[in-house]
């Protein structure tokens, strides 16, 4: 018996209006098995982030449906929030909490055992060891991005949704992120990411090409060619 897909969308229409006519791209049909990596690729405004927002339950579909582990997306369910880790294009923090405390807060919020040890590992991995006691206002834009990315790995997850994770990262950090995402997939975590970075696309097993007029499931190699042609 085939296992339940980690992510499946059927005739999914996404957009910021109220009717199907306001959808930003054609219907999206995709099925991602557990442990796979899906790179969502497309030009600016093609609907990549909008699709991811629908996947994580921040945007209701205009048509069709989207399921995560066989259940229709509803971020109000605790089980959903516990399974899906996201890093979207958002940047906010409590001004009076340090980097370490933010990560610790999220870890404990998810009931992580040995939270402090895990946070110590992650601040080192994401190059924040020296800045772990710093307040968010004292961080550079790239360091804040690292903190937000580390937040996705400090908690339990079965599906990892990343919106252009390469943004504001230096080349070294991007390489480490690619390695980390490969390790996540090897551990059974499904990765879905919108990206323009060829190295990150290389870490995926599937690709979804979005344009205003078409949506195509394909191989990462073809997605790389698509990115180069953009």
């Amino acid at each position: 018996m085939a296992s339940t897909p980690a992510l499946r969308s059927q005739g999914l229409l996404v957009g910021y209006g109220e009717s199907a006519a306001t959808a930003v791209c054609p219907p999206i049909d995709v099925s991602v098995p557990p442990g796979a990596g899906l790179a969502v690729v497309g030009a600016n405004g093609s609907g990549k982030s909008t699709f991811l927002r629908a996947v994580v339950g921040l945007l209701a579909p205009l048509g069709g449906k989207v399921e995560v582990f066989g259940r229709e997306v509803d971020e109000r369910e605790a089980e959903f929030r516990s399974a899906v880790a996201t890093v979207m294009d958002e940047d906010a923090a409590f001004p009076a909490l340090t980097v370490r405390e933010h990560l610790l807060l999220l870890a404990r919020g998810h009931g992580v055992a040995k939270a402090s040890d895990l946070v110590t590992e992650l601040v080192d991995e994401f190059g924040l060891g020296e800045r772990q006691r710093a307040m968010p206002a004292a961080l550079s834009s790239g360091q804040r991005r690292r903190m937000l990315l580390a937040a996705a790995f400090v908690r339990p997850r079965k599906l990892l949704v990343l919106d252009e994770p390469e943004q504001r990262l230096d080349a070294g950090m991007r390489d480490r992120l690619v390695t980390r995402l490969r390790a996540e997939r090897a551990a059974g975590v499904t990765v879905v990411m919108a990206t323009h970075d060829p190295a990150l696309v290389g870490a995926a097993s599937h690709a979804l090409l979005l344009t205003e007029s078409s949506v195509r499931s394909t191989k990462p190699a073809q997605a790389l060619a698509f990115i180069e042609a953009l």
Partner: peptide, 16 residues
């Protein structure tokens, strides 16, 4: 919920 709470509280399974 403010922007910080949205990013650091809402993703947890803690009861809303």
């Amino acid at each position: 919920v403010g922007s910080a709470g949205a990013l650091w509280w809402l993703p947890t399974p803690a009861d809303r």
